[in-house]
Nucleic acid binder design. Sequence first.
DNA 1: GCATTTTTTTAGGTTAGGCTAATTATTAGT
DNA 2: ACTAATAATTAGCCTAACCTAAAAAAATGC
Lengths: 218, 218
Amino acid sequence: MTTAEENYLKAIYHLSEGGKKSVSTNDVAGAMKTKPASVSDMLRKLGEKEVIEYRKYYGVHITDEGKKQALQTIRKHRLWEVFLVDKLNFAWDEVHEVAEELEHIQSPLLIQRLDTFLNYPKFDPHGDPIPDEFGDVKAKPRLVLNEMEIGQMGQIVAVKDSSAAFLKYLDKVGAYIGARIKILDKTDFDGSIEILVDQKKNLFMSKDVAANILIQQS
Amino acid sequence: MTTAEENYLKAIYHLSEGGKKSVSTNDVAGAMKTKPASVSDMLRKLGEKEVIEYRKYYGVHITDEGKKQALQTIRKHRLWEVFLVDKLNFAWDEVHEVAEELEHIQSPLLIQRLDTFLNYPKFDPHGDPIPDEFGDVKAKPRLVLNEMEIGQMGQIVAVKDSSAAFLKYLDKVGAYIGARIKILDKTDFDGSIEILVDQKKNLFMSKDVAANILIQQS
DNA sequence: GCATTTTTTTAGGTTAGGCTAATTATTAGT
DNA sequence: ACTAATAATTAGCCTAACCTAAAAAAATGC
C-alpha cells in the first residue's frame, strides 16, 4: 500500500465509524481535501485491492481486510503520538501533523519495539484507544458532553476535533484529558452548559465546544 | 525538497566526500540504483535548485547550499540510528533501512527534540559523526585498518561498508565500534592482518575486511 | 412523473520519478 | 588522428496521484 492509499483507507474507516454502512465519494473528498474526481480513481484502485467494496454511484463499504489495515495505520499513528508527547515533550496539539508522516514508516519491527519502549500504552494523548497488533480495540462506551444531563458525572477521555485551535482553547480554559467533570446546568435555548471540573473549577462552554468533548462514565 | 531529491543529494555528497571535485552520472546511477537516463533528469532539476553545479557531460559538483542540505539529511539519519539502537534496542545492522525512511520526516522541531532526548550524541552506532544543526562535523582523522603498520594502536570508530552481511560478520568475530586494537602482524602477499582486540583476543582478517574498518588514534 | 439539481464518473491533462531505445559527446586505442 | 568504445543526454513512454471540464446517473422538487 502506498502512503496515499493508506490515507484514503484511514479516512474511509473513520467516516464509517458512526455505524454508517456506506460512505459517499463527496465525504471522502471532503475528508481528504481532494476533488471527487480523484476520489473515484482511488476508490477503483482500493476496490481492486479488496480493502473496500465499491459499487459505482453507490458509495463504498470497508471490508474486514480493509478495516484491519486501517487499524494498523491508526495504531502506528497513535503510538507515535504517545512517543512525541511522553518522550519528546511535545504538547498534545503539536503532534498530529508529525504523526501523520511517521505512521507511514514501513517496519513492523519498529512498531513492535516502539510499543514496548512506550510500555504498551492503551490510549493516545487525545484519549483515543490504540488498537493492538491484531486490530482489537477495547473502548468503553462514550458520551458526547453536550448530550449529558444535569447531575451526570464522568471523565473527559477524548476530543472529536483534534485541531490545534480547539486543543489550545481547551488548555486555556483548563479542560484536559482525564479531568473529572459534573454537569451543573444546561441552557435550553442555545445548548450551552456549565460544568464543574475536578470538583473545584466552574466552566461555561458553548454547545459547539461540548459537542467535541467525549466523556466516559466510570 | 522531495524524498527523491534528498536521496540524490545525499548520494552526491557521499560520492564527493573523498575530495573528488566532480561526480559522474554513472557514479550517481550506481549509488542510487537507477539508470543514467533518470539521473540526467534529476541532475537538471537539482541544478535548477542550485544545490549542485551541473555542466552537461562533465559531471556534477555539490554547492555550499547543497552540502548544507545534504548534511541536514545525514544528521537526521544518524540521529534516528542512535534512537533505534539506544532506545529501541535495534542491533546496529538492523537500523539502516528504517533510518533511510525516518530521515525524510519533515519537522525541524522533531529533530531538535530528538537530539535533546538522545542527549546530543556526536556519533552514530557505526561510529560516523553526527553533523550539528549548522552542518558542522568535528571528525578526528581516521586511518583505514589495512593501511596501518605493525605495532600501531587505536580504536575502531567506524566502518565503510554498512551492509548487514558485513556488520554481522564483525559481530561474529568480536569486532565492534569502540574496540581498542593493536596491529600484531601483516602478511605482505595477501595483505591480511592479525590484530589484538581489547588486549586479549587475537583476530585474523583479510585485507578486504580490514579495508572497511576505520581506526582513530587517541 | 418529469425536469432540474446534485453527485459521481469519465475523459483528458499535469508533475514527479522511473524506464528503454536512440542519439550525441567524450574518451581511448592503435 | 581517426575510429571504436564508453558515457551521457534526449525522446518518448509508463504509473501514481492529483487536477478541470464534460458527461452520466441518482436524487429532489413541484
